[in-house]
Design a protein around this nucleic acid. Structure first.
Lengths: 144, 144
DNA sequence: CTTGACTCTGTTCCCGGGTACGGATTCTAG
DNA sequence: CTAGAATCCGTACCCGGGAACAGAGTCAAG
């Protein structure tokens, strides 16, 4: 099996060298032994592991979650993996609901503002000055 | 009109004292003159301004955006305010689409995993090991 | 008048996920 | 053999939105 230097490893996984080192610090990735006074060589399996990490991130998992998922890769972790996935799913659902509410408020505001041709005060501003921003007023800034 | 000390101001707007000072540093909030060797007193209008800021944040605007919106409060800024609102609306729409895609992938994965009663490998893990995480693979971590 | 609570000001720290820098070494092309 | 990449390792910095701390001053109740 071929072995890569860190730059090649990073390039073939589509990340930066610094990112690889960062994952090593985070213990998401191992560090192969360094030949006496030389440079480390990474087996091709490291590329797969990096891709695993990137895909899990793309599904919205944090690096801490990813660490757990990687441990489950030994095989026995269906239940735990499902837990993580469900938790993430719940977060996504909540986030979508929040954003949909925001979207509704903003759309209404823009419509009103267009409708009120240049009359002052601008409804968008006026809403911020007065109203409680209706349903949308809480729990909006969180993860993702 | 009554005037408040900073702690009362913060409490009546539902934020921390440090937050008030932070907004002052960011120029979102003014700083009333300090009586010689004493403590600043904030007119009640400051509470309204703080609430304005919080509501705008709840609509997903950044503090930089909020600064612009506050300037528009003088009245003439319909068009600019609408621009900001529309931009924000576009971001929200894109974000919702991303999250909906993620949601679909995760749901499918969880269903498969339940369906595959304890057989290894766990489909969730297997997907991360192999697949390109379909449509969801890019542009997922951004604002909000 | 003292004690405790608040304020003022400046500075540092936090979160997550990296990026960038700097000096020393080592590898590689010409 | 030598110049220029690439690597190694440790550390510092970035983003946004605050939170926390330190040391000194001030205000209100008992």
């Amino acid at each position: 099996m071929e072995a890569l230097k860190i730059g090649q490893l990073a390039a073939s996984a589509g990340v930066g060298v610094e990112t690889v080192r960062y994952y090593q610090r985070r213990k998401l990735l191992g560090t192969p032994p360094k030949p006496y006074g030389g440079q480390r060589l990474y087996p091709a399996a490291y590329v797969d592991r990096l891709r695993f990490i990137k895909r899990a991130q793309a599904l919205g998992f944090s690096l801490d979650d990813v660490a757990v998922l990687l441990q489950l890769n030994d095989g026995t972790g269906h239940v735990r993996a499902r837990e993580l996935a469900r938790r993430r799913l719940g977060e996504i659902g909540a986030r979508i609901a929040d954003l949909a509410a925001l979207k509704g408020v903003l759309e209404a505001l823009i419509r009103e503002c267009e409708h009120a041709h240049g009359r002052r005060p601008c409804p968008i501003i006026a809403t911020l000055v007065r109203a409680p921003a209706s349903h949308a007023a809480h729990a909006v800034r969180s993860r993702n």
